[in-house]
């Protein structure tokens, strides 16, 4: 199977047809749910937080971030800001947001999603290229999350793009946009071990501590990579999870 990032840049790959397909595919939704829930678990937040979602796509992840259920967030009510480079993906999020508004206004019955107070209305979406830097002032976010996105930073879509420069810009601006003990968890699909090393090395150079968590390492299909980084020092609890840098 070819990797989407080898076919075309993300804003072209996820055109309106692909975006709609992606958002409505229930297997995609399930995998997104599992990876977002796991990322939140690795963030290990203790109170309702302000979270940056990098490469939010159609905000399937955002919906899970702001789910105030026991199962996902122990009742915490997080707010988030999502960045994505694909206007068509964001368009899908707007459509779903409008649908949710309509449904909640229309429906007083106790549906199965009670506990999901905010839904997509807990979030903001913006059109942005993470390689151009995270455009938020110092100390904005308590945490950042990214699902299946940061491997796109290795793409070189035109002659002026230097992936290493973009990755460095990404990590240094992300570091600055997080609070003092802010954390960043990113699930990603590395093409090879070099890409993992590059992320870890640049993250460390820009001030992060932490490392890599691999879930289901024996499974070819379900093996998942998570960068787990912190602006402060990792607590012993977190350190058990991540190989130290």
């Amino acid at each position: 199977m070819s990797r989407p990032e080898e076919i075309a840049p993300p804003e072209l790959f996820y055109n309106s047809k692909e975006s709609k397909k992606y958002t409505e595919n229930s297997r995609v939704q399930y995998i997104q749910y599992v990876m977002t829930k796991r990322s939140l678990e690795l963030l290990n937040l203790k109170k309702s937080s302000f979270i940056l979602d990098i490469g939010c796509g159609s905000c399937l992840s955002g919906e899970i971030i702001s789910s105030a259920t026991e199962e996902v967030n122990q009742g915490m009510n997080h707010y988030w800001t999502g960045l994505d480079i694909s206007p068509d993906m964001l368009e899908q999020a707007i459509i779903r947001k409008e649908e949710q508004k309509f449904n909640t206004n229309d429906d007083d019955s106790d549906d199965e999603e009670s506990g999901d107070v905010g839904g997509l209305r807990n979030g903001d979406m913006m059109l942005h290229d993470m390689g151009q830097g995270i455009p938020f002032r110092a100390g904005s976010f308590d945490a950042a999350i990214s699902i299946s996105a940061i491997q796109w930073l290795f793409n070189k879509d035109n002659n002026n793009q230097d992936p290493i420069k973009r990755i460095r810009r990404f990590f240094e601006s992300l570091y600055s946009s997080l609070t003092k003990n802010g954390k960043f968890v990113a699930q990603f699909y590395p093409a090879n071990d070099d890409q993992i090393d590059t992320f870890l090395q640049i993250a460390k150079q820009t001030g992060f501590s932490g490392g890599l968590v691999i879930d289901n390492p024996e499974s070819k299909k379900n093996k998942k990579y998570y960068l787990v980084l912190s602006c402060g020092t990792m607590s012993s609890n977190d350190a058990d999870d991540a190989d130290n840098l």
Binding site: M125, H128, Q132
Partner: peptide, 10 residues
Amino acid sequence: NGIPNLLLPP
């Protein structure tokens, strides 16, 4: 549509 465009020109 409620979405700011933060993309920078080259």
